[in-house]
Design a protein around this nucleic acid. Structure first.
Lengths: 227, 227
DNA sequence: ACAATGAGTGAAACCCAGTTTCAATTACCC
DNA sequence: GGGTAATTGAAACTGGGTTTCACTCATTGT
């Protein structure tokens, strides 16, 4: 599989038409020639534009991936927040066109080969995440952290997408944001300078105060520590 | 790509021969027919046995995957330990035949398509891990935990394998065991009953005692909590 | 012993995704 | 307008993977 020319936005509509055609007539039953006809170009041009019969199905991933890379390059957010936001943005993009997402999903059930293809495509996100994490992580972070967290981000994203496609959840970006916050919290010590410090809170309180007063004092102390 | 018959051990030698041939003559330059000749069977039989030109390169993964599934089904180890041991065992198996591993590695550099193929194959480990984690995790564990941890296990494994192939480390199983212990520690609260309990230690002590006495009392209390 | 069944193999024809080549068309630019 | 470069289409070609069929050789039942 050779280098594929970058997908221009105009292709987006064509690709939806192609996906629709594939879903209606079946994946195997549709030849590359049929597909080319369906999107209104010659077989040659079809391959030049989309690279392969499979890639037409995942055309928007190119866009989402580029957007993610740009975002991570430019963001000023804290690393944990940046990862959560970046991942949620990708999901938002994929969820924006429910019809395409659902047809893709059906096709992937019909054809395991497409599942594989999707896997490969989503793995490119992993690489982008890992590169970003390596760039922003604390000094002396072990090598395994970046690939490990990157893989988890993609896995959590994919799980949320699946749940949404199966209609187990309705607000996928919200769900993924919640889950990702908990995930990145696990890695906080390598993502933020404060996370690395072991802290001991010594609370000295007036024994004559009420339990509520003690709790209040502890809460105030926790706030001062920053979350 | 249809169902592939399970790889029998006899194929293992054949597959090494095939890999060697591919590495020597180049991937593109070798047709499926050449490969069939190289391993001493007809083109038809070659496809029946290995399913595809790519799969012959990753034939041992079938074995490793089956071994992992059996191990996780049967083990009595604590979940965290089981995951570490299972993953390390897979790595041990892949590292056992350094020549095959290295040739595979070279081929994957030459042909990005093979990288993709490997990705798909290693993803099957993720599913096996996720299923096991879901089975043993604590009640009320959030849904995202199993896929997230499973993906990390595979990622850490792959990172160790890559480091070993690049000769950045010499004892891959040892390195991966160390890293995986740290990884599973992050998820301990969902993997063990003790990890899940939030504990608050309230130490009431005699203000007239020495600091050492206080520390001693605290230490004793911690011991009684188990660990 | 010997048919019958069935699994494994090879040969050949076949399908189709993806590539390559070349000619035709279009767009662009001075 | 004319010349150049990029885009498109047509057609032939390569090779992976499938299918069909015939053949061999165990295994099994009688």
């Amino acid at each position: 599989m050779p280098a594929k020319p970058p997908t221009v936005p105009a292709d987006q509509q064509s690709s939806v038409a192609a996906i629709r055609h594939l879903a209606e007539r079946g994946y195997e039953a549709t030849t590359a020639g049929d597909l080319a006809d369906a999107v209104g170009m010659s077989r040659s041009t079809f391959f030049r534009r989309f690279g392969s019969k499979d890639d037409v199905i995942f055309a928007d991933h190119d866009h989402a991936l580029a957007q993610l890379a740009d975002f991570l390059d430019a963001t000023e957010l804290q690393p944990g927040e940046a990862l959560v936001e970046g991942t949620a943005d990708v999901l938002r993009l994929l969820v924006r066109d429910p019809e395409a997402a659902r047809l893709r999903f059906e096709l992937m059930h019909e054809r395991p080969a497409l599942r594989d293809r999707e896997l490969v495509i989503t793995h490119r996100y992993e690489r982008v995440f890992a590169r970003y994490i390596r760039r922003v992580q604390q000094p002396a972070t072990p090598d395994w952290v970046a690939p490990s967290l990157a893989a988890s981000l993609v896995a959590v994203h994919n799980a949320a997408l699946r749940d949404w496609l199966r209609e187990r959840i309705t607000d996928a970006p919200r769900a993924v944001t919640r889950d990702l916050h908990r995930l990145t919290a696990l890695y906080e010590r390598w993502l933020t300078a404060e996370g690395g410090r072991q802290r001991v809170l010594v609370a000295v309180y007036d024994a004559s105060g009420s339990p509520d007063a003690v709790l209040g004092a502890v809460a105030a102390q926790l706030d001062r520590e920053g979350r």
